[in-house]
Every structure is written in structure tokens, then in C-alpha cells.
Amino acid sequence: MKLFRATQPALIIQFSADERRMFADVLLEYPAVPEAHQQLSRSRLSPNDDEHQQLLDEALAAQRAELREKVQLWLKTPKRFRRVKGGFNFALLRTDTAWLLQVLNDVRVGSWLRLGAPDPLPEIDELFGQPRERFQHWVLMEVAGRFQMQLLHILQSGSIA
């Protein structure tokens, strides 16, 4: 995954065929963080805490529903990925980068939570001999993180003064 060309409205990003498949696979895992995972506060704020927490839960749930639909539509858009020599190009509108980063990080954090939220993060050899499912969570966490960092790098290198 690398920047091919930067224009004002869009970043033209180049994928290998494997990267394109993995990118779509990662996006389709959204949402991975369980509902009601986020807490508004660690302490008691006011007698209305439950109401405020409920409002936050509702706002995050609405966002999840909206993003889930957006991901599906985005991936289904015809010619989203254009075949070129050596792989695929796709045009990422700069206005789409924020939600895409949200989706990638949700999948990364959600996979980490499924691993039991280990701290520090486990190395791959620590998962040898463990259930296959845990290995899959680890791979998804790492791949989502890799795409996330590559996208951030592309955003930084593709800035137009």
C-alpha cells in the first residue's frame, strides 16, 4: 500500500492484489469493539450519570450503524479498485480518511480485546500452541494496525500546501 499520486480531493493509493484482498477483509470485520465498551467517566460525576452514559452509548451505536453501512457501500462501489500493472489503484477522497481510520482502529482495538486486552502486546511466538482463534485475532490486530499506519503515513506524505 503506497501513495501513487496526491490531488486536492483525493489520494490515489496503490495496492498489490494481496493487500487489496486483506484490506477489504479487515474492513468487513467492522465493528469489532463490543457495544457499551466505552465508559463516559471513571468516577461519579452527577446524579444524571446513567443518562449521560446512555446518551454516549446511543451516539456510539448510531455511529457504528452508520459506519457499517458506509463500509459495505464503499466496498461495493463498482470500480472502487482499478486494475493497473502490478496491482490495483483506488482513489481515496480526503473526506473519507477520518472514518476509514476509525474503522481500522476499531478492528485493531476490537481484536486486542478479543485476545483479552493483553499488556504488553503479545509477540506471535507467544501464541504458538494456543487456539487458532487467538492467532486469527492477533493477525487481524496486526494487519489492521499496519494499514492504519500506512494510511497515516500516506496522509502525511500526501499533504498539499
Binding site: 463516559l40 468516577s43 460525576l45 454516549l56 455511529q63 476509525q102
Partner: peptide, 19 residues
């Protein structure tokens, strides 16, 4: 403050509101 916490949590950062 609630608005900012929501914005940060949309990106799955560990953010909270404290008195």
C-alpha cells in the same frame, strides 16, 4: 467536554470525562 469525549471515543481512544 462530553462532545470531545465522544469525538475521541469515535476513534477508539481511551478517553473519559472527569470532574
Amino acid at each position: 467536554a462530553e462532545f470531545y469525549v465522544h469525538q475521541l471515543q469515535k476513534f477508539t481512544l481511551h478517553a473519559t470525562l472527569e470532574r
